[in-house]
Design a protein around this nucleic acid. Structure first.
Length: 289
DNA sequence: CACTTGACCTGTCCGC
DNA sequence: TGCGGACAGGTCAAGT
């Protein structure tokens, strides 16, 4: 569920909360979720300082002073929640309300820092993972070699977007948007939202969409991603930011989880269907094949 | 080779 | 109320 805006929101939070902190211990209950050998953890994680937190596509990278990075994929239900060791934020503060509630049964990994603050990696469904890698070797991973451009990068243009989509011109457009090698960071929510914005049916073949509509799709995709980052992402079920707070983008969503409600443009009831194996929300009047 | 389906998991919700 | 099955949807691997 965490897509680009959610992972970016977590990145911003972690960068503020973790920078300069020194790791003193790491515990995990689940080998697959943190596959590094204990000797490597001791050598490259313990006693290392957090230098920076980065994001590429839906992947987070916590760069350490040891020359290694923790790379993290949250997949569907992963959370990274930071809890300060001593400071109390006051009643009503989300982090304060989490005190004493973590770890819980979804907690897979706990990092403890020198000031006794902790970072909890929770993942109900265990699809996510985190592992240590030399910082300079990250870009050599298959995923990073193949992943497409960042859709919000300054130098990413509508023409590049269209050219990349057209490489799969015979496919339905929604699975192409979801393909991380075409454009990075788009998942089910923002695919449905941007296709509604551009009035494109998700099953339309890319080659059958006019260039004008593809340009519109580029604009709409950037628009929904930016709005969602501004709103702290989308919380459907599990997603929270680094302080345990939910995101509010879904209040502004036009189709996602809005089946049975009137389309905000034309009043036709939004439907939910299945496209390329994914739950797909659309307006049957605005979005025709 | 391009595309589709299944696997990975667990919690929730629906129908009987 | 209990229980089986569908569903949630990111990514990789296997199958068509």
């Amino acid at each position: 569920m965490p897509e680009l805006p959610e992972v970016e929101t977590i990145r911003t939070g972690l960068n503020l909360l973790l920078k300069g902190k020194r790791v003193v211990s790491e515990t995990h209950d689940w080998p697959k979720g943190f596959p590094n050998a204990p000797a490597d953890v001791k050598r490259f994680l313990l006693d290392a300082k957090v230098i920076n937190v980065r994001r590429r596509a839906k992947v987070l990278m916590i760069d350490l002073s040891s020359g290694y990075s923790i790379i993290i994929h949250l997949k569907m239900t992963g959370q990274l929640v930071f809890i300060d060791g001593k400071e109390r934020f006051g009643a009503g503060h989300p982090t304060d309300s989490l005190l004493g509630k973590l770890p819980d049964k979804s907690t897979r990994v706990v990092l403890t820092f020198k000031d006794n603050s902790k970072l909890y990696f929770n993942d109900q469904r265990k699809f996510g993972w985190m592992r240590l890698l030399p910082t300079i070797s990250i870009e050599e991973l298959d995923f990073f070699k193949k992943v497409g451009p960042e859709p919000l990068a300054d130098n990413f243009t509508a023409n590049q977007f269209i050219e990349r989509l057209m490489r799969r011109s015979k496919s339905a457009i929604k699975p192409v948007l979801l393909d991380q090698t075409v454009v990075a960071g788009v998942g089910n929510i923002y695919a449905d939202e941007s296709l509604w914005g551009a009035k494109i049916h998700p099953e339309t073949k890319v080659k059958d969409v006019s260039v004008q509509k593809l340009k519109k799709l580029f604009d709409e995709l950037q628009k929904v991603l930016r709005l969602s980052i501004e709103k702290g992402g989308s919380t459907d079920k599990n997603y929270v930011n680094a302080k345990g707070e939910k995101g509010s983008y879904l209040q502004f969503a036009n189709v996602f989880r809005r089946q049975g409600q009137p389309c905000s443009r034309c009043g036709t009831l939004i439907i939910k269907t299945r496209v390329a194996g994914r739950g797909t929300h659309l307006c049957p009047y605005c979005q025709k094949v």
